[in-house]
């Protein structure tokens, strides 16, 4: 009987521990995220889609903005996963690099702008809530995560662009050029 009772309390204990975790996650950072997301959703709807697409097209023309500003605009305004549709403004040869840059920004952006990828907040929040629990400020972490993220997606875009150029003749056959890639029929 005693063993049974101990077993039962151990069993319940498993979930009590989970309950504590649940409450600390829910009460810790989430309220701020909710208010922030409300403001940003409102801003996005006031700015409007057409204007954003114009900005995206303008940023697609330059190699630096193509892998920094353009993925940021995509993630901020269209959010994950619709952000990748901005790839349509680019020639074929840049599409893998743009996808790589955009998708690699879907977590660094969440520290400052959680609305961009609310289903995957805990890549950032998991670590950030640990910092918060020991009384450290997380503002600086969020900003650095964002800025380093921009540098990283720029490098990633450039590297993936090169690798795409390197692999094209090796995978699609000798003599297949990037121009052929751009001109291919669907």
């Amino acid at each position: 009987m005693k063993a049974l009772a101990e077993g039962a309390s151990y069993f319940i204990g498993l979930f009590q521990e989970g309950g504590k975790v649940f409450l600390s996650l829910l009460g810790g950072i989430l309220p701020t995220v909710i208010v922030l997301m409300t403001a940003i959703y409102a801003l996005v709807s006031l700015i409007g889609e057409e204007r954003v697409e114009r900005w995206a097209k303008a940023s697609s023309r330059n190699v630096i903005t193509r892998y920094t500003i353009m993925p940021f605009l995509a993630m901020f305004f269209l959010t994950n996963p619709m952000a990748y549709t901005f790839g349509r403004f680019l020639p074929e040869r840049y599409k893998p690099a743009f996808y790589d840059a955009a998708v690699s920004f879907c977590h660094p952006i969440t520290g400052l702008f959680p609305h961009a990828n609310p289903g995957e907040l805990f890549v950032y929040l998991g670590i950030a809530s640990g910092l918060q629990k020991i009384g450290l400020p997380i503002g600086g972490v969020a900003i650095r995560y964002f800025l380093v993220g921009l540098v990283v997606i720029f490098i990633r875009g450039i590297v993936t662009e090169r690798i795409t150029a390197f692999l094209t003749p090796r995978i699609l056959g000798e003599g297949y050029t990037l121009e052929d890639l751009d001109k291919q029929e669907a």
Binding site: Y84, F86, R88, L172
Partner: peptide
């Protein structure tokens, strides 16, 4: 993700390994 960006089949063929190796 590439399909969302309206990438053509050959781009996907090169793009997948390109991103993975990168």
């Amino acid at each position: 993700g590439l399909a969302l960006g309206e990438a053509k089949p050959k781009t996907v063929e090169v793009g997948v390994p390109a991103v993975l190796f990168s």
